[in-house]
Design a protein around this nucleic acid. Structure first.
Length: 475
RNA sequence: GGUCCCAUCGUCUAGAGGCCUAGGACGCGGCCCUCUCAAGGCUGCAACACGGGUUCGACUCCCGUUGGGAUCACCA
């Protein structure tokens, strides 16, 4: 059996969108689940769309999620070059050969965009250039006349091809347009380049969006004309923004980079998108790339579009955050603490934050009170469940202050013990002591951690300072 | 419009004729735990688009309807 070879062939538009990344993932998994090779190829045949630095984004993204390629522009391989603009001579050569083989013809029609109305329909047998004898066409080219190479479709009847996810698909040859294969600028269109490259690079499985289904018979005709073996096709449904719109940059939808910037972990994003159109057949949902490589099966790919649900991604990201070691989490969270000048216990802070956030971006709102207590209203001390009022709070804080001043070992256990004792000694409920302390320290109704945890994070000095300030506010 | 494709809870999905009074997950509601909020545990609400067949029996097979998507570029 031939070694599986798949390829990710993005065009460098400067943006790695989620659908693209998912396609790359499936390509990677199809290759790796059978010990095959994953090839990276840059499809930059449209010079108008080229964006400087775009290939770097592609490299960085793939590396970031751990999808390393076996061959590619930067690392080479036996089938290079891996950038299509560097292969132009190859396409031209094959295009002319295809004309000789009868699979294409030279066309001298004006560019469609240049024409007003009634542009020549290039459906089967309508193009006048098909009637130009080959000798004459060659003469005109030799004279410097601009030309394109256009696919020649003479077949009658129905084409049929098999797709791994959609099954057998039949399309009538009459439906196929004789598209341009080699443009007047000498570069190939995707329609031609992908066939030539996939064959030359010995790609066994072509994975791509299902918008290519309708043109697949045209590619098969090219393979046939050259006498080449077509690849196994795996057309995947699109990733949607909602029921009727694809996820796209145009809609302002989040790209991989955008999500990472918002505090989503690359591993979580990858895990989530793997499940957008594929499932393992059991009820597990959390998978590392390595685990996916082991259990992936293209037979379990879905036919229908999947809507990208940021909610579920957020939940999954929370799972990944909670599964991080304390050290790993601290490292990721650290940048979000930079602006705080209050001396805080960052270890305790990270410990409090880790189970409470689902994206790193949520850290900011969680810790906004650390730099300074916000200007809150004393009515915040009013809490029916805790049985507290501003008056109770004033009493509690007054009792607590001297006790805390005498705490030597400033840690959570001691603080909790000491404060509970204050409650017992004065026949108050725990909440009547702890709730006011927490509000005094944070000025917020909800906080990452309870009173004593906040006290540890802030340290003794800052804690006492804030309680005194609260007492003044309540006076 | 022609052609191709798709159709299970709000969302991602399981389901390959009887195992389905349709399972899981997210979200949502409730309860427990609890120094607030989370986390964790338990629990509730919620779907086979519609109509015909085929069959002893259809979520599962066939046809149609409806609804969506894709494609018909010197873009990929």
């Amino acid at each position: 059996m031939m070694k599986t070879r798949t390829r990710f062939a993005p065009s460098p538009t400067g943006y790695m969108h989620i659908g693209n990344l998912r396609t790359a993932l499936y390509e990677y998994l199809i290759a790796k689940s059978s010990g095959g090779d994953f090839i990276l190829r840059i499809e930059d045949t449209d010079q108008k769309r080229y964006v400087e630095g775009a290939t770097d984004i592609i490299y960085q993204t793939l590396k970031r999620v751990g999808m390393l390629w076996d061959e590619g522009p930067d690392i080479g391989g036996n089938f290079g070059p891996y950038v299509q603009s560097e292969r132009r001579h190859i396409y031209a050569q094959y295009a002319h050969k295809l004309v000789e083989l009868g699979g294409a013809y030279y066309c001298f029609c004006a560019h469609k965009d240049d024409e007003e109305e009634n542009s020549v329909s290039h459906t089967k047998l309508k193009d006048p250039c098909k009637l130009i004898p080959l000798d004459e066409a060659k003469k005109r080219i030799a004279n410097g006349e601009p030309f394109v190479v256009r696919q020649n479709i003479n077949k009658k009847g129905t084409s049929i091809f098999h797709d791994v996810v959609y099954g057998d698909i039949e399309i009538d040859y009459d439906e196929l347009d004789e598209g341009v294969l080699l443009k007047s600028d000498g570069l190939p269109t995707y329609n031609f380049a992908n066939v030539v490259d996939d064959h030359l690079m010995q790609i066994t499985h072509v994975v791509r969006g299902n918008e290519y289904i309708s043109s697949t018979p045209k590619y098969n005709l090219i393979y046939e004309a050259f006498g080449w073996q077509p690849p196994i096709y795996v057309h995947v449904p699109p990733v949607m923004k909602d029921a009727q719109h694809k996820l796209s940059k145009r809609n302002g939808d989040a790209s991989f980079q955008d999500l990472v910037a918002k505090g989503y972990l690359p591993e979580a994003i990858l895990n989530y998108i793997a499940l957008l159109g594929w499932n393992p057949g059991d009820e597990r949902e959390i998978f590392s790339l390595k685990e996916l490589e082991e259990i992936f099966s293209s037979e379990r790919l879905n036919k229908s579009p999947a809507i990208f649900d940021i909610n579920k991604l957020t939940w999954m990201n929370g799972c990944y955050i909670r599964n991080l070691s304390a050290q790993e989490f601290a490292t990721l969270a650290e940048p979000y603490y930079q602006h705080i000048t209050t001396p805080i216990d960052t270890v305790a802070l990270s410990a409090a934050l880790q189970p409470r956030i689902e994206t790193l971006g949520q850290i900011a709102e969680q810790i906004d009170f650390l730099q300074a207590v916000p200007d809150y209203d004393v009515s915040l001390y009013e809490n029916k469940k805790m049985k507290t009022t501003p008056e109770v709070a004033q009493k509690a804080l007054t009792l607590v202050l001297p006790v805390l001043e005498n705490v030597a070992e400033w840690n959570n256990e001691n603080l909790f013990e000491v404060l509970k004792k204050v409650a017992v000694d004065h026949e108050m409920k725990n909440g009547q002591i702890l709730y006011p302390v927490r509000i005094a320290l944070s000025g917020k109704e909800t906080t990452p951690g309870g009173a004593t945890e906040l006290a540890v994070i802030l340290g003794k000095e800052e804690t006492l300072k804030r309680i005194r300030a609260a007492l003044q506010k309540l006076a």
